[in-house]
Computed example of a mutant assay.
Amino acid sequence: MNYIVPFLSLFFVFIIQLSSATANGFCLQTYIVHVDLPDSQMLSDQLETWYSLFLPTTLASETDQTPRIVYSYRNVFPGFAAKLTPDEAKAMEKKAGFISAKPDDMPLHTTHTTIEFKGTITGDRKSPTVADFSARGPNYESQGILKPDVVGPGVNILAAWPNLVANNNTRSNYFEMISGTSVSCPHLSGVAALTKSAHPDWSAAAIKSAIMTSADVMDRENHPIMDEEHLPADVFAVGAGHVNPARASDPGLNYDIAPDDYIPYLCGLNYTSREVSRILLRRAHCSAVPIIHEGQLNYPSFAIRLGSPNQTFTRTVTNVGVAVSSYNVEVVAPHGISVVVTFETLNFTRLNEKSTYEVSFRGSEYVGDTFDSRQGYILWKSAKHSVRIPIAAFHL
């Protein structure tokens, strides 16, 4: 069974997978339309109106009154998804502000027949694998933060559907077989909810850390997770690994981040005080905080630029496992890079006790002008828990 990455990041992005349809003899296909906004401060209701102005009046639109815009993008890019004929998509090119209209070529796997239960097939030894349309890293906007975070189920998922789906037996249902982030995100949201129910006092960052550090990197045959080409999937395809709901509730150690810890991080990305204040919904002053390198955020992963000077970052872990416990470090360094951790062992005597360590990366020289990526990990292991964080080293 294939899987797709859900982007669990500082900013969540949801991409809707949409289908083709036929209405009144006209072939309607879903197009992703990219437009230029006349005003970046447009409100949501204004966006809907602006997007609707791009829809041309044709024989198909006059004959079929079905709403054409099926999704409006607000965060990924300015634009919308709409069911159009090829002629309608072509006609939009004359509209002021139009940038592009491309068919949604990500297949939507749907069923229009009676769902008949014939048993569950289990035991696929190659499961999980990463789907070809699963989004890959690196994180161009914040290159010191590894993306994706994790992978989860997202291909051929039986999911609820807002519109009735008729089948050949004249029956209708509200379910479809769907692939994409739209059905992958609920899996991860459910894992987060389960973890939160087990630990009501944990922050969102602590829950994300638990999901990432407990993720699986091997398939059912105990081989590295593969991609769509049947090759080992790299860190920019799987992130920390495939989500493991059972282990996420008992990760052993957590890499927590307090809300105020994001302020020096955001200011370090050259956001203005006004922009940071909008994110926080309260006043923030970048001049009043010590700006940090993005790699210094207490994130459960590392992303290192090849060719950069020697770098040292700190990480703080919180003991959420066994009160009295010791964790020994195991380091697998990316090729050509020296990774040095200040402590070989972390000792704890009580729950919620914190311990801070430093990680130094040296020897990351790179000569060339092509993309290159290498990977490794740091593993803290106790008698009961294994806490793994990935390392990505790359050159764009």
Rank of each mutant, 00 (worst) to 15 (best):
F133A: 00
D124M: 06
D124R: 09
S189N: 07
M106C: 02
K147R: 14
K126N: 13
G123Q: 05
V191F: 15
W161N: 10
I157D: 00
K126Y: 15
E141S: 12
T122F: 12
L194V: 01
V183Q: 03
L158D: 10
H187Y: 15
V130Q: 03
N169P: 00
A193D: 07
D104T: 00
G119V: 09
L164W: 12
T122L: 11
D149T: 02
G152P: 00
G190R: 06
G180L: 09
N167K: 13
V130N: 06
N163C: 12
W161L: 03
S189R: 08
T195H: 02
I145K: 08
I115V: 03
I115M: 04
G123S: 02
K126S: 08
T129Q: 14
F175I: 07
D124W: 12
E141Q: 12
A135D: 04
K126R: 08
T195I: 04
K196T: 04
S134E: 08
H109N: 10
F175W: 13
I121N: 08
R171Q: 14
P148Y: 03
H109D: 09
P128F: 02
L146Y: 03
H109L: 13
Y140H: 07
A159S: 15
T110D: 10
R125P: 01
K147E: 12
A192H: 00
T114Y: 02
P128C: 04
G152M: 07
K102M: 10
A135L: 15
F133T: 04
A193E: 11
A135H: 04
K196Q: 11
A192L: 11
N167T: 14
S134K: 06
G137H: 06
N139R: 12
H187F: 15
S127N: 13
I157H: 00
I157V: 15
L164H: 15
S127C: 08
W161G: 01
R171T: 11
R171D: 12
A192N: 05
K196H: 05
P107F: 05
P186V: 11
I121F: 14
L188H: 12
T120Y: 11
T114A: 14
E116T: 11
K196W: 12
A159V: 08
A193T: 02
L158E: 07
Q143T: 05
G119Q: 06
L194H: 00
W161V: 02
S182R: 00
L164S: 09
M177L: 15
A135N: 02
S182M: 09
D105F: 04
N139K: 06
W161S: 05
G190Y: 07
G119T: 03
D105E: 13
N169A: 12
N167S: 15
N163H: 09
K102G: 03
T120R: 06
S127M: 14
Y174S: 10
G154Y: 08
Y140N: 13
S127R: 06
N163R: 15
H112C: 09
A160W: 15
L188F: 11
D149Y: 15
A101E: 02
Y174A: 05
G180H: 07
D124A: 07
D149W: 04
N163T: 08
R136S: 01
K147V: 12
T195W: 00
F175A: 10
K118G: 13
T129W: 10
L188N: 09
D149S: 08
T122Y: 13
N168K: 13
V191G: 03
A101V: 03
P128Q: 06
A192K: 00
F133H: 07
E176C: 09
I157A: 01
P107V: 01
T110I: 14
